[in-house]
Design a protein around this nucleic acid. Sequence first.
DNA 1: TCATCACCTGGAGA
DNA 2: ATCTCCAGGTGAT
Length: 282
Amino acid sequence: MQELKKIDLDITINSGQVFLWDKIGGMWYGLNGSEILKITQDPFKIISSEKKMSDFFRQDDDIEKILQSIRKDKLVKDAVSRFPGLRLLRQDPFQCYISFICSSNVSIGNIKQMLKKITKKFGKRINFDGHEFYTFPIPEKLANSNITELLSCGLGFRAKYVKKASQNIVSGRIDFNYLKKVDYKTAKDILVDVYGIGDKIADCILLFSLEKIEAFPIDRWTLRILRKYYSDVFDESISRSITKKKYEDIHEKIVRHFGPFAGYSQQFLFKMERELNNKKWL
DNA sequence: TCATCACCTGGAGA
DNA sequence: ATCTCCAGGTGAT
């Protein structure tokens, strides 16, 4: 059972939940809000640029219990045994929020590129461990930016989303601490009200940064998985696209099937199906 | 409630 | 080289 507790860095970072990570000389360096993290796999060690380190790897989760809970069918069992070290991460909410707003209709590599440019243009430059990094900007910086500046980061039509979404944070209309406290449905209804955030992006933000582990982002890959392997379970054979009503129906069935940690199962399935198709991660 | 469609941009494949 | 197509979707009609 000791193997089950081991976090696999390469697999976890390369699973589509984080973007601002680079492997330098065998070590992973990554950005989480204002914090720079340096992680080594063996021995597993985390060094943070900040004193109060966040529990980025969710080491407070009872992972054995969670993995046991999501092993509801053969496919998830396969995915868990193939990627036993895959974990959900606990991200800085604002960075996560902006990251996934940028994610619409682009490849993962492009998302990383946009975000890197955002940090370089709006973040604070700091030195850490002999390397130069840029922190993720505070909401005010992006809220007060010009669309032109955002466009120069390659955001395209997402530029207006990022600006408005940041203004919603500054104004207090979106309050991450509040969203953490309330239940999934309440938090989601508030998030999808933000210009540029729909069902899928809201679920990513909820799952990856707001402690809503029942969130199960349904994107083109997840939909493909549901159609390919679960058509009998979720009745998802027909539509190519997915309506709002249908998204909710499917989510309800998903939680009924996978249980309260459905988000974990999503991460394993997503990872497996993308690997199967040789898709790139960063 | 549902189905289409336009949308910025960069990278991959023809 | 040049073009087409597509990418962790969303908003407008």
